[in-house]
Amino acid sequence: MNSKTRGMGGGKGGDVIVETVARLMVPFIQLFGLYVIIHGAGGPGGGFQGGVIIASSFVLYVVAFGIVKAGNRFSEAKNIALFSTGVYLYAGVGLLCIICGLAFSAEFLNYGYIPLTHHFEENRALGMDLVEVGIGITVMAVITSIFFNLVWKREGEEVEGED
């Protein structure tokens, strides 16, 4: 990363104020994202919105510290592992519902048949939360991956018309 690239694509971040505010804000944004994911079943929000909020905390991290540091911390391989984990969690809960509900009526994503607790309704709530967590992980990883790929200026690549 040479000194010609600057801003979000450059290796260096901004000034002290931006870095300090980002350092303070990023954990709280992520905490809010987790809150939105967990409370998605009963109120406004859900896996998708929470995932987008957590991904926007990574956007703030890139704005403050530069793409190189963020890319080293949150590499492409980790991204791919995370978004396939989310999809597998979603599909796995659905298949678990089919397997556990074979004796009754084998339905995909009918959470009540997962034997987590003794109550059908509680099983349903817990299964819904698991699916929301899977959606949240996938959305977070995909949006972070898209943003990193848009921002990242690779070595030797010609930056056209930066004015």
Partner: peptide
């Protein structure tokens, strides 16, 4: 909620990132 998170948050960041290349 979706509109505020995706439209005002993520899409703006994507578009600014795309604009920084051109």
């Amino acid at each position: 909620f979706t509109e505020a998170a995706v439209g005002a948050g993520a899409t703006t960041a994507f578009l600014i990132a795309a604009l920084s290349r051109t």
